[in-house]
Amino acid sequence: MINIVYRLKSPKFFEEAIEEIELNDVVVRPTYLSICQADQRYYQGSRPSDILSRKLPMALIHEAVGEVISDSKDIFKPGDNVVMIPNTPFDKDEFRANYSELSKFRGSGFDGFTSDLVSLKHDRLVKLPNNFNLQVSSFIELMTVAYQGIMKFLEFKKASCKVLGVWGDGNLGYITSLLLKEICPECEIIVFGKHVENLNLFSFVDNVYLIHDVPNDLRIDHAFECVGSAASQSAIEQIIDLINPQGTINLFGVSEYPIPINTRMVLEKGLTLQGNSRSEREDFEGVVDLLCNNPHLFNYLSKLITNVCEIKSIDDLKTSFDKDYISDFGKTILKWEI
C-alpha cells in the first residue's frame, strides 16, 4: 500500500516522501497528534548540528492516537481508537525496553507519526475506550513518562513519605503533580515554579510556591524535577537544600548541556537520584487504566490544550509548529486531516 510520510528535511522545512507500507502488522491512520518540546528542538534547529545532520530527514511527533485501518491478526478491529507507543524494541536484553540500547524511539531514532498511515507491531498499540477524549489522549505518551517515574519512585521510596515537591510549572510538572495527587492521595503535594499564571492552574495540589519565595523552614521528603534545560541546575540546587535526608530526587528534565550537582550535599544527606526517560507498554496500560477509573482527570488535562490545529497540508503543519513555539504553556494538538 502506498503511504506518504511528511518529514522534516532541515529546520523549518518539511517534505513529502512516498513509500510502501507493510500490511503484515497493524495499519493505523493518525487522528490526533501532540507537539512535544523535543519536536520543537528539531524544527527550530536548536539541537547540535551533528545530531541534526545525522537524524534528518525524519518524520516528527511521538505523541499520537489513531484509528485502526487493518490488522493482519484481527486482534484490533477497523475503527478501534488506539494510542501508539513510540518506543520500539528491536531485540531483547536484561534492561527495561525504554532504557535499552536495542530500542529506537519514533521522532528521534527513526520516523515519527506524521504520515498518512503507520504500520506498528501489535504490542506497540493500546486500545482506548470509545468515551475517551481523543484530543487529551493524544498526549498520553507524556503522561506515561510521569507515570513510570512515579512507579519507580514508589518502588524505592523510604518509609517517610508525607511531603512531595514538584519543581516545574510547565506541562510535565502539571501532569506529574496531577498523577501524584491521584496515586498518592495521602501525601501533601507542593509545586515550585516561576510563573504565577501557570501556578494558578494547579488547583488540585496542596500548595504552590514561587521559587524565590519559599519559607525558610519548608522541607520535603521527595522531589520530582520537571524543569529541564539550563534551569534544571538551580532547581536541583534548591531541591537538595530543601529535601530531608535519605530522600529521592526524580529527574525528568532534559538538557543539552551537562548540569553541575552538589555531590557533597547528596552524600551528606544520603540522597538517591533517579533518572527517568520515556516509557514502555506497561506504563501506557497503567495510564489508560488510571484514566478509565478516574474520568475527572480529563477535565484537568484538557486545561493543557492551548491550540488545536487542523492539518490539511504541509503549510498547516508548519503553522502549527510556529503557533506552538510562541505558547508559554500547554499543548498544541494536531487534528490530522492531511
Rank of each mutant, 00 (worst) to 15 (best):
N133P: 06
G112N: 08
K127R: 13
G173P: 00
L172Y: 11
G173E: 05
L180M: 14
S115N: 10
L178N: 07
L172V: 10
L125P: 02
K152C: 01
K127D: 01
A223M: 12
H122Q: 12
L201G: 02
N207D: 13
V196F: 05
L125T: 01
D169Y: 01
V191H: 09
F132M: 09
Y209A: 05
L179W: 00
I189Q: 02
I190L: 11
D123R: 00
Y209G: 07
V208T: 15
V145R: 07
N198Y: 15
N200P: 01
M151S: 07
V208K: 01
L179N: 03
I140F: 04
L178E: 04
N216T: 13
T176W: 10
D116A: 10
I175R: 03
F192Q: 02
G193N: 04
V205P: 00
N131S: 12
N171E: 08
V196A: 10
I190H: 02
I175C: 01
Y174P: 00
E225W: 12
L120M: 14
G170Y: 06
D206F: 09
E141I: 04
L218A: 01
D213L: 08
V118E: 15
V214I: 15
C161N: 15
D123F: 01
W167S: 10
E141H: 13
V118L: 12
S203C: 11
V166F: 14
G170A: 13
R124D: 15
C161G: 03
L178G: 03
H122L: 11
K158L: 12
D169T: 06
F132Q: 07
L178A: 06
N130V: 14
F132H: 06
L199A: 07
L201D: 10
Y147V: 05
V205H: 01
K152N: 13
V205T: 04
H195L: 04
D123I: 00
E197N: 14
F204R: 09
I140P: 10
G168P: 01
F192M: 06
E141Y: 04
G193C: 10
V145F: 05
G112V: 00
S203V: 11
D221N: 15
F113K: 05
G149A: 12
E186C: 06
G170F: 09
N207S: 13
G149Y: 04
I189E: 00
K152W: 14
L120G: 06
I220N: 11
F113M: 05
D206C: 07
V145L: 06
P185R: 12
N133M: 05
L180Y: 08
V118Q: 11
L210P: 07
M143I: 12
G165E: 00
C184E: 10
M143W: 08
D123N: 13
H222G: 08
K157C: 06
N171S: 10
K121W: 15
G173V: 01
E186M: 12
E186Y: 14
M143D: 03
S177T: 12
